[in-house]
Design a binder for these strands. Structure first.
Lengths: 153, 153
DNA sequence: ATAATTCCTACTAAAATACAAGGAATTGAT
DNA sequence: ATCAATTCCTTGTATTTTAGTAGGAATTAT
């Protein structure tokens, strides 16, 4: 049972963006460095998040990315699902799957069980916002080394 | 976020054994057929469950496997962990991982989040017993086509 | 003009997954 | 005593997924 680095890295990137919310675009190079994630990999992840409308990009020098909504309005669930697809501890209980997917479902006792697993994960993912993820024990976490580097005079 | 077929198939096999608890050994061939799982794959899965002591094998003709404990005493968590290892939505929050595994943990706001995910899954897995998994809506599920085939006279 | 940046596509090494294959050992039934 | 059914054990392997790399085109502030 694991989430892939897509979801995990993507979430960390979104947290970084949330920490810099309303301070102008933040470049992926900065996030890649502070979060220690490969830049080109991060580009691919953020591209997905842009396509679903969670972030917007500003091209050109001093460009970067910004959240399209307040961190309190974006959930971990939105981010993770965008990057990893619907929650699905097993295929037959993937979120959004058509009923009748599995022909053994009338006799399958494990299906309700996996649904419970799925729902309990969904509950945590959907109740947690990026704003929540900017705090530890309710304390806002200081933004380490984020923010645009000073341009030499 | 998915569980592999090891955990899912293994659990189904254990449910089948639970349905035949105290009726003598059940062969993997029967389970493989009724559950539509490859026999040799199933052999490998059950081997793991035997090594951790959840089932015992009886060799020879009319042999098979039996649970080593009452279905009400074996949890889905035990079965799944045996087959897939510790619950770990991310490596740094794997069950049983040493603290200090990740050097960024003092500033990492996502770690407590992934721990919550892990714990909510664990709670479902650990509260659900094989006995629970033999029922749907509290009704004991009939055992379809299980039980030793009649020997020709 | 130039440097910084997003944006896009294609490729790839390594790991994990889901088995298949083959055979040795054991045991109940005939 | 033989045979068939079964567990038990090891090794191999095709396919898929993961986690990137690489290269370059388009855009924009300075």
């Amino acid at each position: 049972m694991k989430f892939s680095s897509k979801g995990r890295y993507g979430l960390r990137a979104m947290i970084a963006l949330a920490q810099g919310y309303h301070k102008g675009p933040i470049s992926l190079a900065e996030i890649a460095e502070s979060e220690d994630i490969s830049l080109s990999y991060l580009e691919q992840l953020i591209a997905v998040l842009r396509r679903v409308g969670l972030v917007e990009g500003t091209r050109g020098a001093r460009g970067g990315y910004q959240l399209t909504a307040d961190p309190a309005l974006i959930t971990a669930g939105q981010v993770v699902r965008a990057l990893e697809g619907p929650l699905a501890p097993a295929e037959c209980v993937a979120e959004g799957v058509k009923p009748g997917f599995c022909r053994r479902q009338t006799i399958c006792t494990s299906k309700p069980f996996w649904e419970q697993v799925r729902d309990s994960v969904a509950q945590v993912l959907d109740k947690t916002t990026l704003a929540d993820l900017c705090t530890i024990n309710g304390l806002k976490v200081r933004q380490m080394s984020l923010g645009r580097k000073k341009v030499e005079a």
